[in-house]
């Protein structure tokens, strides 16, 4: 159980002159559920997005299952860094799935086709097998009656559940959630959080960037508070959210007047 799935060392990310992530170390154990919290612009989403290389790290290393990703070499700018091939990153992303704030479903495909797409093009599963696995995942998120609908006809909550099914269909070892409820109407947040909660019960390894502190409290084995691009405080949900030690964490939490936990 204590097996480390992901190990991040000294992660940095710069966008031009903007230094967003400034040396983050983080270990994720198998089956662990981590909530990453912090103010807007603190770099928490960027850290998450570096884990499946939606953003390329400017510096630092990422290990998956004890294997260091990329090879040593000189990147574009001539700085020493790591080089990642497209093949390696595509293979990695089938193992580390992601759910986005904006869902990013394919509007020209039906719900079922959206979930089948990765199975067919990436995993080269047969159409029949892909259809049955996709149907299975869509049943799990409660959308069996929407298989042939187009995403445009669905509510935000339903779209996000399709996106979760699409990620699950690839059978990833780790699931990343990037503010999955931030763009939803308040009355639709619950249905998405219930699905995420059900996945947590299955013992999946998950990282969640969120502003829903109440949910984070119940969801997470560990909470990581990010400020100014570094891990400012980390510990169990109780330690960080109820008894924060550091002033900055306390100030951040104080701003959430309604603490639902």
């Amino acid at each position: 159980m204590d097996e480390t799935v992901i190990r991040i060392r000294n992660l940095h990310k710069r966008f031009g002159d903007l230094h967003v992530v400034k040396g983050v170390d983080l270990e994720v154990k198998r089956g662990e559920r981590i909530a990453i919290i912090g103010a807007s612009g603190s770099g928490k989403s960027t850290i998450l997005r570096c884990l499946n290389f939606m953003e390329m790290p400017s510096e630092g290393t990422i290990e998956l299952d004890g294997k260091l990703l990329g090879t040593e070499g000189r990147a574009n700018g001539g700085r020493a860094g790591r080089i990642y091939s497209e093949a390696e990153l595509c293979a990695l992303r089938t193992r580390v799935g992601m759910v986005f704030q904006q869902f990013n479903l394919f509007p020209h495909m039906t719900v079922l086709e959206n979930v089948m797409e990765g199975l067919i093009t990436v995993k080269r599963t047969s159409k029949d097998a892909a259809r049955s696995r996709a149907t299975e995942q869509l049943t799990k998120v409660g959308l069996l009656d929407k298989l042939d609908a187009y995403p445009g006809k669905l509510s935000g909550g339903q779209q996000q559940r399709v996106a979760i099914a699409r990620a699950l269909a690839m059978e990833p070892e780790v699931l990343l959630f990037d503010e999955p409820t931030s763009s939803l109407d308040p009355e639709l947040v619950g249905e998405v959080l219930r699905v995420i909660h059900a996945l947590a019960e299955e013992g999946r390894t998950m990282l969640l960037v969120t502003h829903e502190l109440g949910f984070a409290y119940h969801f997470a084995d560990r909470v990581v508070f990010i400020a100014d691009g570094v891990v400012h405080e980390t510990g169990t949900a109780d330690e960080v959210l109820k008894h924060p030690k550091r002033e900055r964490t306390q100030a951040f939490l104080a701003r959430f007047t309604e603490r639902a936990f």
Binding site: R93, T121, M170
Partner: peptide, 25 residues
Amino acid sequence: RGQWEGAKAIGMTRAMTMRRVILPQ
């Protein structure tokens, strides 16, 4: 850009994404 990211996140290559996701749209 989200369309590229959605496809990328399930392991699709740039070429696959162009063919299956971007061009049809």
